[in-house]
Design a binder for these strands. Structure first.
Lengths: 74, 74
DNA sequence: TCAAAATGTCAAGTATATGTGACATAAAAA
DNA sequence: TTTTTATGTCACATATACTTGACATTTTGA
């Protein structure tokens, strides 16, 4: 998949740890970690919760072409 | 949950049936149907595929506050 | 009206997102 | 350095997205 550096960055901008974000969205630290590392494919509801917690929109954090998306060429 | 009329509408604008859209995104007709009816919570990848097939963005089809979202008050 | 296509729905199975608990390492702060 | 906190990672359990196949109903068009 592709690492999501935009979440990490938006999180840093709010000085939140992975656990802080997890608590804010009612998820667990490992889930946030896995999403940032691109290890899986979260549900749209979780994405929306993350966006709200970070004051971003879906397009800003999850639409492609963003500054993040480290595509793995394969 | 909430019905997603925006997908239905964007699909109509492209004259696509649920099955057409399903084929375009590599899913199955029932899955598209369930998403439009708000019966579940699709993955972000499927959402992105749907957006691309319909020439829309995530914010246009899945961010809240859109013309659609029939909230069920409960 | 009749037939075909589109949509809604159901039951059962598979794949995978997410949770829980635990431990190792990296980074920050004392 | 030593201690604490944040992050990465693993194994296992559970919930649910998604598939498959089938049938009923609604809509469209001949």
């Amino acid at each position: 998949m592709a690492k999501n550096l935009r979440i990490k960055s938006a999180r840093a901008a709010k000085d939140m740890t992975q656990k802080d974000l997890a608590d804010a969205v009612g998820a667990v630290r490992q889930t946030i970690n896995a999403i940032e590392l691109g290890e899986y494919n979260p549900s749209i509801r979780l994405c929306i919760s993350i966006c709200k917690a970070l004051d971003k929109t879906l397009d800003e954090l999850f639409w492609e072409g963003g500054m993040n998306s480290e595509e793995v060429t394969s």
